[in-house]
């Protein structure tokens, strides 16, 4: 029983980061109805930038801020250069374009920083805490990850439900034509959505980097996990993305704990396949009926 609890506790930390990546995917989907396959690539790139800042200044906070700024800028660049023109094209076009962004970012990162995994020093100790005479699989760093994730989720929820900016963003995504007529600068709102997603992705990247090593491809598998979480959560729901992101982390921890680490991707893949078969529009997506 204690091992079970240990596994679960260990899963929360990676689950929180998966939840953040899933959140970023949901933010982009909400604003432009596109799944941004480049999201983890953007996060990887901004994390490398954050690492460079940390190496130069020695400050984790500065590194995080640099990562955030880079995330917002990169999100805007990708939106302005690639996605805004692509929007008038078909779905296949947007998938292929975001994929192109992903592989060119990865190749660029490999050219600049090399393919060897780099380590990213955590700001607080990442060793298991000793409480009540035993060592728990939770560190101060894990607690930091929970806190940052929770703050972000609450802030985003407040943004979308309590502010006029959030309302305008929802309106732009829901019905661009009507939103335009109501005086909302729809393009600006969509761009803001992409920038916001870039920031959330950047936070996720900086948070995961100390526990996993950082290399141009180290986030690839996270894309699958986050995509699974976002799809199971319905792609439209912030809460769904967070809940199933954490859930995916827990499943991964249990599979890795009781089985073999290599089985985790297969289990997640089966989870994704089952969800898609049962509910092709995502498990908790709005049940919009569609002919054929």
């Amino acid at each position: 029983m204690t091992t079970f609890i240990d596994y679960l506790l260990g899963g929360f930390s990676s689950g929180a980061v998966i939840a953040l990546f899933a959140l970023a995917l949901v933010l982009v989907w909400r604003s432009t109805r596109i799944v941004n396959f480049a999201q983890v690539g953007q996060a990887m790139f901004t994390t490398f930038i954050a690492l460079a800042v940390q190496v130069a200044t020695g400050s984790w906070i500065l590194a995080l801020l640099a990562g955030l700024a880079a995330g917002a800028i990169l999100g805007l660049i990708v939106y302005a250069l690639v996605l805004r023109p692509v929007q008038r094209l078909d779905t296949s076009g947007s998938i292929i374009a975001t994929f192109g962004v992903l592989i060119s970012l990865q190749a660029l990162a490999s050219m600049i920083w090399g393919g060897d995994p780099k380590s990213f020093a955590p700001p607080v100790a990442n060793d298991g805490l000793e409480i009540a005479g035993r060592i728990w699989p939770i560190s101060w760093y894990d607690i930091l990850v929970y806190v940052v994730t929770a703050v972000l989720v609450v802030a985003l929820t407040l943004l979308f439900t309590r502010t006029s900016l959030g309302l305008s963003m929802r309106a732009s995504a829901f019905n661009p034509e009507v939103a335009k007529l109501s005086g909302i600068r729809v393009n600006r709102m969509l761009a803001f959505g992409w920038a916001l997603a870039g920031v959330v992705g950047a936070v996720a990247g900086v948070l995961i980097a100390p526990t996993a090593s950082l290399s141009p491809n180290s986030f690839d598998i996270l894309l699958i996990f986050a995509f699974t979480a976002a799809v199971v959560g319905g792609l439209d729901s912030l809460i769904g993305a967070v809940a199933f992101g954490v859930g995916t982390g827990l499943v991964l921890a249990l599979v890795t704990g009781y089985g073999e680490a290599g089985d985790a991707p297969i289990v997640v893949l089966i989870l994704l396949a089952i969800t898609l078969v049962v509910r092709p529009g995502g498990a908790f997506g709005r049940g919009k009926s569609r002919a054929v």
């Binding site: 799944v35 998938i95 699958i224 699974t228 799809v231 994704l272």
Partner: peptide
């Protein structure tokens, strides 16, 4: 549909 299929096949 599109993105779901792409995600599954990528997985």
């Amino acid at each position: 549909r599109g993105p779901y299929l792409a995600g599954l096949t990528l997985g």
